[in-house]
Design a protein around this nucleic acid. Structure first.
Lengths: 189, 189
DNA sequence: GGAAGAAATTAAGATACCTTAAGAAATCAA
DNA sequence: TTGATTTCTTAAGGTATCTTAATTTCTTCC
């Protein structure tokens, strides 16, 4: 068992032979800080699970970068659209710190779904939960001020937010680093 | 076959007996304009599929309503979080026009997943696609101006946007109806 | 078909957040 | 450790979008 299969086993019960089949398609990798796992134009061939560390995904629009999401311990990342359709990605994925990841290739996962129907269930539930989180994020951007969104962020990632550069947090929240700085200044309250 | 099973059959091939089992848990219903299918506090007991018409989901924050999404022909709606966890909802779901819907109860769907593994695949894929759409919506709110988001909206719902009140489109886009009005004014270009 | 209500428009003043810029602090590389 | 680079802070002026409010247009419903 590794951290990924443990995560799966928390949702669906896998038989020994299923665990074995699953483990045979998981590859491990250490990612250096600032190293890229995906760049625009490449097809996202594998889905990435973070064992320990922090990755981010972002894209370029009019020369500016925009972060889509962070992935910390026990979460998944990649370019979902590119992965699902095996089409060229529009996202960068890189590491904010030295990070250990596990990966499953698209081609292997497709076969595995046939072999292990419970894996299909796991990913259905994973996608459902991710969708709920995205809906909540959309609600927060519509209903909360920049300051409130920052407070939500620090509450959601209490162990991580100090190791993510402030300008990246600001970018993720959709504000400028200068404005985040004024928000954080206690005199601004 | 109905419009829902046709939609499913486009993604996964169902045997006759599976179709039959599926159809036995689908209930049909006409919804009047302004009629509610869900209110905060209620548990979202069924997932809703729109055959024809238009529903919306929204919530109240500080006395203001905020639309989360619209569902038009061939799309699904509800309070996903409430549905998945069978906990009290925070959302309203109501009809913007007379709408025909099909519904599947949570309790029935849970059983059906055991009986028809292909249904699990269908919903995995449905959730994946919805997640991609939500990611794109988040990217657009961060990268596009209000005017560009409005143009995306009319391009995405060419057959529907004129039947949705402008104030609701504005609300969905996260702007005021007054501002949408000035954006739409050709003199503002 | 007309009255009452709701939605859309227009405009003026207000505000949250942005841009630019410069200095201070932290991090990185050698 | 030190110099170079990146990040963070502070502040002043600017812009997209909001608020309020008044007017017009569109719906609803009896």
């Amino acid at each position: 068992m590794n951290q990924l299969t443990e995560n799966i086993a928390r949702i669906v019960r896998l038989e020994d032979h299923e665990l074995k089949a699953l483990n045979s398609v998981i590859t491990s990798r250490e990612v250096d800080k600032k190293e890229f796992l995906l760049r625009p134009g490449q097809v996202c061939k594998a889905t990435i699970f973070v064992v320990k560390g922090c990755l981010r995904s972002y894209y370029l629009k009019d020369g500016e970068y925009q972060i889509l999401e962070f992935a910390v311990d026990n979460w998944w990342i990649g370019d979902l659209k590119s992965f699902l359709r095996q089409t060229p990605s529009e996202l960068f994925v890189d590491a904010l710190e030295p990070t250990q990841v596990l990966r499953i290739k698209y081609s292997k996962l497709e076969l595995l779904y046939e072999e292990i129907p419970k894996l299909e269930r796991f990913f259905r539930i994973l996608m459902e939960n991710a969708l709920v989180a995205h809906q909540e994020r959309i609600m927060h951007t519509h209903t909360l001020s920049a300051r409130q969104r920052y407070e939500m962020f620090t509450a959601k990632y209490p162990n991580f937010y100090h190791s993510i550069p402030q300008k990246d947090i600001a970018n993720y929240l959709g504000i400028t680093p200068e404005y985040l700085s004024t928000i954080r200044n206690p005199n601004s309250h």
